[in-house]
Design a binder for these strands. Structure first.
Lengths: 297, 297
DNA sequence: AACTACAGTTAAGTTTTACTTAACTGTAGT
DNA sequence: ACTACAGTTAAGTAAAACTTAACTGTAGTT
């Protein structure tokens, strides 16, 4: 195994040799013409001979360049083939997906029949979980997370921002005339995501001592339970718009004090970079973006 | 032509797959184990699956890794073949060499029979020139230059430093009793290399006004002519030691005032980097270094 | 002859990648 | 319990690679 020159330089050589144009090679390789020029120069220095004759408006191969081309072309075609085979989707008709539990049950699953109608050949298998599972181990294709979008070794694509509302049952709302009176009722909270900062913001905005009125019902990491409790009139909750906008529209829940809190977190599609090339994932993410864009703010 | 992952990562994958050891792959690729580890991780992120199962004291390939290996191995073997074919010497028994004229005629050519005796299968073809010719165009293997060793797109290997002496014919030396009297005799100069700085140094050292005594005979860029003229007693010259040390030993020339000037320039072997791998060039450069080391200072 | 358009070159600066080092982790063997 | 070894990872440094902008040379056009 000899010392090879910079491998990208060989790749650019191939592109230039096939097109007989540094400009066309640059376009093909998504770099500038200068980059191609410099790499060819590096290769020529490495080999100690010229590979191209520079002409006006195009280049041509020297004898040395012609000698080099076939093996390099064959070499890269094998590399392309090897890489291409592995990038390909082993299960093009099954989409294994993890989704945070709240979004799954309250928003996605009720809509999935629309995706099924549009793409009947793709079976979506949802696994609700609030943890980021290992993709390889669990044969996952995609995850929908709510967070800051930074996951090691994974690519994130932002789906949507969200807003948190302070809400309760309309019957309970009649008993809440001032912001301060909120503390006299059960407040439904969770520790995850942006809910705690939202409460803090509300208390600060209305100059309320958060320690007054210790009636809070704490449910650890379960937006779903909190929303069910709020719908049942059991307390006041901070909830993301995407999870309750339909109940707001139907008057099953009402906003209090017009309080809104812009989340720092957002919804993300998360997967290994290669997965985003899979057609089923492109179909699903297009559909999902459309569904998200239909959520009223 | 798909987007490929970093090509060096594929190369390290191949080394690791063939040895089943990141440590052995690192040794083979002349990088650290950490570099291999990081690149494999990058590849696994690119493909969205694991390529190796990490074990104690060795690794093994996953199914995905086993699927990737054959095409990558074939791909790189073609790249190695293509590159190897071009690096190989098209004329292993002829060494085309340019040498600065002065060194060629006064020192190298008289010794070349020694090289021929030692390497009878290598024909050295010398082209004396004081210009750096194009290697490709002139089918050159090597050049011997006297300079600072910095030539664009070429590699330089330093052969030797040199020293400049102030010399003349012994007969003429009898008429030169003081440094100042040097100006009353013809001084043989050239514009190239370190000769002018040497003269300047001599004048400064002896507090001589260089404009006094305008008998200088100027020969443009021809040490050979200057040396011939000095040997004929026609004037005083600054000359590099390597070109006249034999004449000094035989008393055909004498040093004046024990003046020496250490050259800033040096002798260099110059060629495209690839040429230094050629066996004939390795033989010649070893021989040449020995010949240079035999020059008395 | 002058001007224009285009492709390749190169210097200089910026960005990105790749590498190393050092500390750490886990697994066997002693 | 200790030791040895191979792989991992964070942090820092060095090198490579890229871009931009100015330049050059060659045809074609006016």
């Amino acid at each position: 195994m000899n010392k090879l020159p910079p491998l990208n330089a060989l790749r650019y050589f191939l592109a230039a040799a096939e097109t007989l144009s540094f400009k066309a090679a640059a376009e093909q390789m998504f770099v500038t013409q200068a980059a191609i020029s410099q790499h060819i120069k590096t290769l020529e220095a490495f080999f100690g001979c010229q590979l191209f004759i520079r002409g006006h408006r195009h280049v041509s191969l020297t004898k040395a360049g012609e000698r080099l081309l076939p093996d390099i072309a064959t070499g890269f075609s094998f590399l392309d083939k090897g890489v291409g085979n592995l990038v390909m989707d082993p299960r093009p008709n099954i989409l294994n997906l993890t989704v945070i539990e709240s979004l799954s049950s309250r928003w996605l699953v009720p809509r999935l029949y629309l995706f099924q109608q549009e793409y009947p050949h793709i079976n979506v298998r949802i696994q609700p979980t609030n943890r980021l599972l290992d993709f390889d181990q669990n044969e996952l294709d995609l995850a929908i997370r709510f967070g800051i979008g930074d996951y090691p070794q994974l690519k994130s694509r932002k789906l949507a921002q969200d807003t948190i509302h302070l809400v309760c049952h309309p019957g309970l709302a009649k008993q809440i005339d001032t912001a301060q009176s909120v503390s006299r009722h059960p407040t439904l909270t969770e520790k995850s995501s942006d809910i705690m900062p939202a409460w803090k913001s509300f208390y600060q905005q209305h100059r309320i001592n958060p320690d007054v009125g210790r009636n809070a019902l704490h449910v650890d990491d379960s937006s779903v339970t909190i929303i069910e409790a709020a719908l049942a009139g059991q307390g006041i909750a901070m909830v993301r718009n995407s999870l309750i906008f339909e109940q707001l529209e139907k008057g099953q829940l009402v906003k209090l004090f017009n309080f809104s809190f812009k989340c720092h977190y957002a919804y993300y599609l998360v997967a290994p970079e290669a997965h985003f090339k899979r057609e089923k994932i492109q179909c699903f993410s297009n559909w999902l973006e459309r569904m998200f864009s239909e959520i009223p703010q």
